[in-house]
Design a protein around this nucleic acid. Structure first.
Lengths: 355, 355
DNA sequence: CTGAAAGCGCTTACAG
DNA sequence: CTGAAAGCGCTTACAG
């Protein structure tokens, strides 16, 4: 492999001039520049990042840790959080930064080792991406470089980018109310899920703003935290909602897979969507939401936008334009994607009056 | 940040001795070693990969390019090929190699740039992972380092690891025949898909080994190559199979999502799985296959195993234990995962005789 | 078992 | 607009 010295000799200039051409830096005579470029091409010169990093003390590297790649054989996941990684990557590449991605393989105990490897590479910042919205205890010993949490947040004032689940629950419920629904059933995520609590908060706020009383009978846990049987509680919970004296006119599911199973159960029970009952999902996992019949109304989990914002923040943290405390916990909004699984409810007023 | 010199001074030894401790290399007195280790800990020493790579001319890096992270907003995918990446990563980390992952963002034109960045980092080998089994034209200018293709293959004798689709189609069909099925319908992947041709080859081999005549009426294209409407042809094609004078007793779908939609259509038409007809998928995408009711028989697409094998091969190519031409195109077998969507067919013999 | 010297391929800091 | 010298933090090659 040729070096800057080989190129310099071939072009009849000094190594420093080659360096200048390489970095588009300082004033270089146009002819000199062309000569250097030609020599580079001729020799197949590829600069060495190691040498550059070593001397300049800037690696141009950012480390990202995720559990996303960590589908183990025992725990399949949908990997939607890869979208976060993609968002980060896009922004960073625009800033000529290289993203190093490492996964925990589902084992958080590996994090310190991964961080260590990143530090050996002298990454300029660290980004931790969680598989679902959660609080993490993890104290990252990052040796003074900026750390950004995405889809999770920590106790300290580590900056964090999270989805705005409260807003999602609010917007969905508000939209349903605007479409005439007043008896709005909910099959939630597992009881312990943070997103469950936040979305229910949004649900209640929308109800209250519309002057609709909150009825706990309309809310049931629809999913289990055990990844081996995520939808175990769904059939009973759905049956429970349908058996209510005043049956809901729409049911919001914890995610699109849960909605998919609700579809299957309803089909079995000869209940038509959306004629007999409307259904909504969450996540806007389009492989499911768009392909279901009827297509599923769902709330966009704004992973790509979160990733992009994370990329921006990382760059600014490195440049010092932004201080960690300027960020805090930042919630990113997602939109409701209205599809045919939700039908306006004409009779709602009568039903609601009967309440 | 402290250097090897700081550690050396703190431990009262020479830098070279610190280096030896760092690399578990050469003979070092136990007491000296402890002293050095203590000094490292005290100073929070983290070795610099740049310096090491530069001097030793070994980066310990392997570059992997995938389109996997490339869900664009317009093209959702299931990302199962992330399993390949995970398999590679696991093996490499056991060999103290670091994987650099870059994605094309769905745009193959970015590949040369990504390769260039990898070369600047002096990766010791390159791994290209495709989203689905395909032949690629791509000539990678990798500057002499080993290149391994995974889930794809090239014209030249670049080593490649692919799934054994022919075997998958064969094993599924053979298993169905063993379970008494003789009229075996197929809703294939898009016409242009390589996996379609390979799996149909396996299907026909199994039929022929069992002395069952191939009936082209039983095979229909069930999916479209347009990612915006992948299952567009499915309803008509499924209807066609069901309308046959001798209706198939089982239908094999191109993938698990297609099977999911077949379930929905059959439910609509009041046809019960597996009582009235058996269904099989492909990919063993467990989030779907295990959660469908009834759980779906599917053929494991051995992505994790392919990734592991790819990791092994990469290591051996780097070490020189293996020459590129020793590999060629290597097909990795997947198993059939039998679940309740397939029911043994008792009446098959009568039906078959009637044929 | 340990160390002194040189050099990997760049960029920095300075000079002209 | 261009260059000579030094040094980033390690490992190599050699010596003792």
């Amino acid at each position: 492999l040729s070096t800057i010295y080989d190129v310099a000799r071939a072009a009849g200039v000094s190594p420093k001039t080659v360096s200048r051409v390489l970095n588009d830096e300082g004033p270089v005579n146009d002819q000199t520049r062309s000569a250097v470029r030609a020599a580079m091409r001729r020799l197949g010169y590829v600069p060495s990042r190691s040498a550059r990093s070593l001397r300049s003390q800037r690696s141009g590297l950012i480390g990202l840790i995720t559990g996303a790649i960590s589908i183990t054989e025992d725990q399949p996941t949908g990997l939607p959080d890869m979208l976060i990684v993609q968002g980060v990557q896009r922004v960073l590449s625009e800033h000529r930064m290289t993203l190093m991605v490492a996964d925990t393989g589902g084992d958080m105990a590996r994090v310190p080792d991964l961080v260590r490897t990143f530090l050996e590479h002298r990454v300029e910042a660290l980004c931790i991406v969680a598989e679902y919205h959660q609080e993490i205890a993890l104290e990252i010993a990052a040796g003074g470089i900026p750390v950004l949490l995405v889809n999770c947040f920590g106790g300290a004032n580590t900056p964090a980018i999270v989805p705005d689940d409260a807003l999602g629950g609010y917007l969905l419920t508000k939209g349903l109310i605007e479409r005439g629904h007043r008896r709005i059933g909910v099959l939630t995520l597992p009881r312990a899920a943070l997103a469950r609590r936040l979305r229910l908060g949004g649900y209640r706020r929308a109800l209250s703003e519309a002057g609709i009383a909150y009825d706990p009978a309309l809310v049931a846990v629809g999913m289990d935290a055990d990844p081996a049987r995520p939808i175990a509680p769904l059939p009973m919970a759905l049956q429970g909602l349908l058996a209510l004296a005043e049956r809901p006119t729409v049911i919001c599911c914890g995610n699109d897979f849960a909605a998919m199973h609700a579809y299957a159960l309803l089909a079995e029970w000869r209940i038509k969507v959306p004629k007999d009952i409307s259904i909504a999902g969450y996540d806007d996992y389009r492989l499911v939401a768009e392909l279901l019949r009827p297509p599923l109304t769902s709330v966009d989990l704004p992973y790509l936008a979160m990733g992009r914002r994370a990329g921006d923040v990382l760059i600014q943290l490195i440049e010092g334009t932004l201080k960690p405390e300027d960020i805090g916990k930042e919630a990113i909004a997602g939109r409701v994607i209205w599809r045919e699984s939700v039908k306006p409810n004409r009779t709602s007023r009568a039903v609601a009056t009967g309440n």
